[in-house]
């Protein structure tokens, strides 16, 4: 692999890749500091740095609300997925019972279903949820759960992939260890919490990182839910709303500032977690 003669070719390829990756991002960053005139005239660099664009776009749209919603939805969903996956994974990995293969097979099979099969029925179910959002006990009347963040969280509380990952991880726990703890009088719940969960930390971290990023970037479902209930808008929906609300011909600088506010902080955090991406993907590809 490391043949010296190859170095220049590799360097040229990587330089081309780096430029085509960095140049667009750099342009977005510096253009968020331009005036509309800079943009219309196609100036490469702003004549003066207009940090005021950021304050201006935050007056136009409630970015604090978008951030709050995005953080709440991503954090709560991630915690819920970890909990349900660790519980089910433990059951499927460490107990022998009739129906286990069937349950596991069902979970694997659903990993293949496209999300679009679920959107229409779940939207209807949440709107008709009884006793919520002004609905009568029959589900008639108001908005059900649709006007709350619960509408963004509930459909994602269980992840087939999460259950699969935790099961695989917990299969490796030695039965002797669990039996020893049972001898000492530990309950099954304590076994799970004090033995199985801590020893599955790497799988839990991988599932957490993936679930968080997926939820953070989730777009289709939040879009259809918050079209009628803007108080539930998350960042990706807010950014889309930004470009459909503001006229792009006269407010381009505000849209670009909004994009920077909306995507750069998370991007930096995700870069730090890059290696968990790879860990998760490598684990994922072993099963193929």
């Amino acid at each position: 692999m490391r043949v010296p003669g190859r170095f220049p070719v590799a360097a040229v390829i990587l330089a081309a890749g780096a430029v085509s990756t960095l140049a667009p991002v750099a342009w977005i960053l510096e253009s968020s500091l331009k005036t509309q005139a800079d943009l219309t005239l196609g100036r490469l660099l702003p004549q003066a740095l207009h940090f005021g664009n950021f304050a201006a776009v935050m007056r136009v749209l409630p970015f604090a609300l978008y951030y709050r919603n995005s953080v709440l939805v991503a954090v709560i969903t991630t915690l819920a997925v970890l909990l349900t996956s660790a519980l089910a994974g433990f059951s499927l990995a460490k107990y022998r019972f009739r129906g286990r293969a069937g349950v596991f097979g069902l979970i694997l099979a659903t990993m293949m279903l496209p999300n679009f099969v679920f959107y229409v029925p779940i939207y209807y179910m949440l709107r008709r949820a009884p006793l919520f959002g002004g609905n009568a006990i029959t589900g008639a009347g108001g908005s059900g759960l649709l006007d709350s963040l619960a509408a963004l969280i509930l459909p994602y509380v269980v992840s087939a992939w999460g259950v699969f990952m935790l099961r695989q991880s917990m299969l490796a726990l030695p039965d002797d260890l669990l039996d020893a703890a049972r001898m000492d009088g530990a309950s099954e719940l304590r076994l799970w919490w004090q033995v199985a969960v801590p020893l599955s930390a790497p799988a839990l971290v991988t599932v957490a990182v993936f679930t968080f990023i997926t939820q953070w970037n989730n777009f289709f479902w939040p879009l259809i839910v918050s079209t009628s209930y803007p108080s539930t808008m998350t960042l990706p929906v807010g950014l889309q709303y930004l470009q459909t609300t503001l006229s792009p011909t006269s407010n381009e600088q505000l849209i670009l500032a909004g994009l920077v506010i909306g995507m750069i902080p998370a991007s930096l955090v995700f870069l730090v977690f890059q290696r968990y991406y790879v860990a998760g993907i490598t684990l994922g590809s072993i099963r193929e």
Binding site: F90, S91, L92, F97, R100, V157
Partner: peptide
């Protein structure tokens, strides 16, 4: 084992 599976089964059935 079924108790551990309960949350997943409930949400699977519903969603």
């Amino acid at each position: 084992p079924w108790t551990f599976l309960l949350p997943v089964l409930v949400f699977y059935a519903l969603f």
